[in-house]
Design a protein around this nucleic acid. Structure first.
Lengths: 334, 334
DNA sequence: TTGAAAGCGTTACCAC
DNA sequence: GTGGTAACGCTTTCAA
């Protein structure tokens, strides 16, 4: 392969300076229409390809927004991602995605890698970070957004909802419909901070209602999904019906539990109520439909985009917190 | 915020040249152990963050591999993505992700944007592209991999499986178990080329077996998922039982159909068989378990990584085609 | 083991 | 309308 074609090469052929080529290739009106046409034609002929790396280097603007997600393999996060990606595309920005696999230490390394690309903003999922991560982000004076949570001490802007409140809604709903012996099904303690927040929310709400201690059913290390919920119930067997409600950390887990419970001949909701989280498709389609919480994953993405827009335009200067309220969606499992 | 910290700043504090700092921060053994320790410590203290943009500019290597996916919101693609992402991370490469939303025109624009970032390789999902896209990629002499398909005229390397063969397996299985009146449930013609290939595969296999014409059930424009399968069956009502097997384009669609059919009181598999595609979690967890095809999404990702490794090391020079065979996974719906 | 100089391709800034 | 100059932060290359 021959060496790459640069603006200099184009300029030489056109008989003008690289500067003029640069202007002609952008939407710069100061350049003569004829000149521009000629430049563009020659560029085309020579197979010139614009080099964003050089531009990013020179202007110190990468055109990137960095985003971390615990996992892409999660319909909720994927939906948020899509909304952010589409929105940024329209602003001429590209999305740089990193996945933490639900591990905070991994997040630190990831943030370091992402920052090395000079992103113009950083969007983190969750409000739980290592001190080093916090220092890294704040030392830069980089616009930062935490999403999917309402952290007590935000890094910058926030778009999220209260996991605690959401769980309180679920518990209140279950109490109203006569349930008292609750069990929580989620990942082992530690990795998933949103999961942990939900668990804590349930325990807290149960105490507030004067219920007996909430049973904990461990579905294994995060991320947990259908098969983990399923396996957790299989391991317990019919004893699961000693509880009268299973509060699951997510809809996929809830569906796994539902399926396992049905195989055991336990009737839902008669013998046992089940609730999920996240308004995943499966909650609406399963038989019976799963009681869940709509967290508006797409709306979170849209709000992140509009925050970023405001930040870049300069109209948003102070840390902003957008509470995208979650809503209980009663189904047929409770 | 203060201007960014560069190697120069670190060098000044340490009392050495930027060159030494550069060496110390890499795994360069020519630098004194003590010096290196000091440099790293100071870098840490100053909050120095390495600038990959400058590196990319100077070395003319971006450290990016570009990947296009039809959608992230698909457990199969997400799994492949994760495998590629993890593998590349270990090679010190970053993944630049673009999503086409199942539209070929969008792919062209996307590829253009991705190429502007100077990726060191390009990984495309599917083997169906516009002429302009093909020209763009081939004109660059950029290593290209198409995955999730076995295109007749590959752009470069290929890691995939035959959708046609997979559907032939399904049809053969259904015929063996006594089904003859097949219906295919998938997206409207056009957008999703893998979906179209599966549809064609079914029609072809049915003809080969001498079956009556395959009924087409339209679940709407791609992407189609649980709710679309569900809605398509609801629209048909009990007439769906005039067929004796529903071949669905994916497991989520199959689950949607299964659920709708069960609500209608049609017994599966007695009155109607249902098959899915992709070995999604829901196929294993649903009641009854859905007959599906395992396409080894993760394995595809791993093979892509090992291909890339070979390409970068120079050990792979000729276009390679890896057929990651799909396998039928009989469930309880057939 | 360390340093100096040059340059990667582009664009901001100023001159004409 | 157009051009010259310098610079972004890093690493290659050569010299000490």
């Amino acid at each position: 392969m021959s060496a790459r074609v640069t603006m200099r090469d184009v300029a030489r052929v056109v008989g003008m300076s690289p500067m003029t080529v640069s202007r002609a290739l952008r939407e710069d009106n100061t350049v003569n229409a004829k000149t521009r046409a000629r430049v563009r034609q020659v560029a085309e002929e020579l197979g010139y390809v614009y080099d964003s790396t050089s531009q990013a280097f020179r202007t110190q603007k990468s055109g990137f927004v960095a985003v971390t997600l615990p996992s892409v393999n999660n319909a909720n996060f994927a939906e948020t991602f899509r909304a952010v990606s589409n929105g940024l595309g329209q602003m001429g920005l590209q999305l740089l995605l990193g996945s933490t696999n639900y591990r905070v230490e991994k997040e630190e390394e990831l943030v370091r890698q992402l920052l090395a690309r000079n992103p113009e903003a950083l969007v983190l999922t969750g409000g739980h970070h290592t001190d080093a991560t916090r220092a890294l982000v704040q030392g830069r004076g980089l616009p930062a957004i935490e999403m999917w949570d309402l952290p007590a001490e935000p890094l910058g802007h926030v778009v999220g909802f209260s996991n605690t409140e959401a769980m309180a809604d679920i518990v209140a709903h279950l109490v109203q419909t006569g349930r008292r012996k609750l069990a929580f099904v989620g990942a082992s303690e530690g990795a998933d901070s949103r999961g942990a927040a939900r668990r804590a929310g349930v325990v807290q709400a149960a105490q507030a209602h004067g219920l007996p201690e909430v049973a904990m059913i461990d579905a294994g290390p995060a991320p947990v999904s259908m098969r983990h919920g399923h396996a957790a119930i299989e391991a317990i067997g019919r004893d699961v019906a000693r509880n009268d409600a299973l509060i699951c950390v997510s809809d996929p887990v809830a569906f796994g539990c539902l399926s396992a419970v049905q195989r055991l001949g336990v009737r839902v909701p008669n013998d046992l109520a089940i609730t999920g989280f996240g308004a995943f498709e499966v909650a609406k389609v399963s038989n019976p439909r799963i009681t869940t919480v709509n967290v508006q994953a797409e709306e979170i993405g849209r709000e992140v985009v509009s925050l970023l827009q405001g930040i870049f335009e300069g109209s948003i200067n102070t840390p902003t917190c957008v509470d995208v309220k979650s809503t209980l969606v009663p189904g047929e499992t409770s």
